[in-house]
């Protein structure tokens, strides 16, 4: 540190610039040493990486002693396997085909998942929780991520273990060789429920459904806007809107699955062009 003696030995000169240099025990110059202790990448980090790679290789080689890549009979366009299962990482999407029409489950929803994932860093305005694991400082974000991927993994498990012939629901103890009778379950669009319940015409029933559908999004958008002002203000309009569209759509998927499984509802909204 600078004191009277060093100032005498090294008089300061305003026309010169100074650097802070220190002599230490060691075999090479150290640049920008921070208070925390640093070590050389080689060998410390490189060694960890090497061990990691070796462990993965060993693990794989052991694994393939017990399980083998499958090879069924030659491709035959005239015999369709039943059930037809997608590779496991797409089983979630395949399972969603039970609940939604293909244009939604197979195209729009995957697209929304990809774009939705990309929006994370731009809609998450919480500055806390960078660089360490925490739940308490970002409960809502962690909840959203976990909810989405819980849906993803649960549908994969259903698709792998609980679906059988004709993609019907089979418990592990059911006879997987006997076709279920699909006539046992009658799926109805939601507006028929209203027609039977309220004795209204089909058109009125449909109108009720349309209103309910838009009310879901409108009320969902409005609640935080009016009652959770801090949440809204922290995001601002644009972020809030983008986030809520994805959030409500994700929750909608869960809702639709429940409606379909518990109440045999096929569609919420029926239009001449698309059904949801």
């Amino acid at each position: 540190m600078e004191n009277k003696v060093t100032r005498e030995i090294f008089p300061r000169d305003a026309r010169k610039s100074y650097g802070l240099v220190e002599l230490m025990k060691g075999s090479a110059p150290i640049v920008k040493k921070e208070p925390e202790d640093t070590v050389y990448t080689w060998p410390h980090l490189i060694m960890i990486e090497l061990i990691c790679a070796l462990l993965v290789t060993a693990g794989l080689i052991i694994l393939v002693q017990f399980v083998h890549a499958p090879l069924r009979s030659l491709a035959d366009p005239s015999t369709t396997p039943n059930p037809m299962r997608a590779p496991w990482y797409f089983l979630g999407l395949q399972e969603l085909l039970v609940y939604f029409d293909p244009w939604y489950a197979g195209v729009v929803l995957p697209g929304m998942i990809i774009v939705g994932l990309m929006t994370f860093p731009y809609v998450d305005t919480n500055p806390k929780g960078v660089g360490y694991y925490t739940f308490s400082e970002r409960k809502f974000a962690v909840f959203n991520y976990s909810f989405g991927f819980a849906l993803w993994w649960v549908t994969i498990v259903i698709g792998t273990y609980l679906r059988g012939l004709d993609w019907q629901w089979y418990w592990p103890w059911s006879d997987h060789l006997v076709h279920m009778n699909p006539a046992l379950v009658t799926l109805v669009p939601l507006h028929i429920v209203f027609v039977n319940l309220l004795h209204v015409s089909k058109d009125v029933g449909k109108a009720i459904c349309d209103v309910l559908f838009f009310a879901y999004f409108a009320i969902g958008m409005a609640i935080p806007y009016f009652f959770m002002r801090k949440f809204y203000d922290s995001m601002g309009g644009a972020r809030y809107f983008v986030f809520m569209i994805f959030f409500l759509s994700m929750m909608g998927v869960g809702l639709k699955i429940v409606l379909r499984l518990l109440f045999n509802i096929k569609y919420i909204v029926v239009t001449p062009w698309i059904n949801v």
């Binding site: 499958p70 090879l71 069924r72 009979s73 030659l74 491709a75 035959d76 366009p77 015999t79 369709t80 396997p81 037809m84 299962r85 997608a86 590779p87």
Partner: peptide, 9 residues
């Protein structure tokens, strides 16, 4: 692999 699994998936 062009087997049944591949083709139908």
């Amino acid at each position: 692999p062009w087997d049944q699994l591949a083709y139908w998936a």
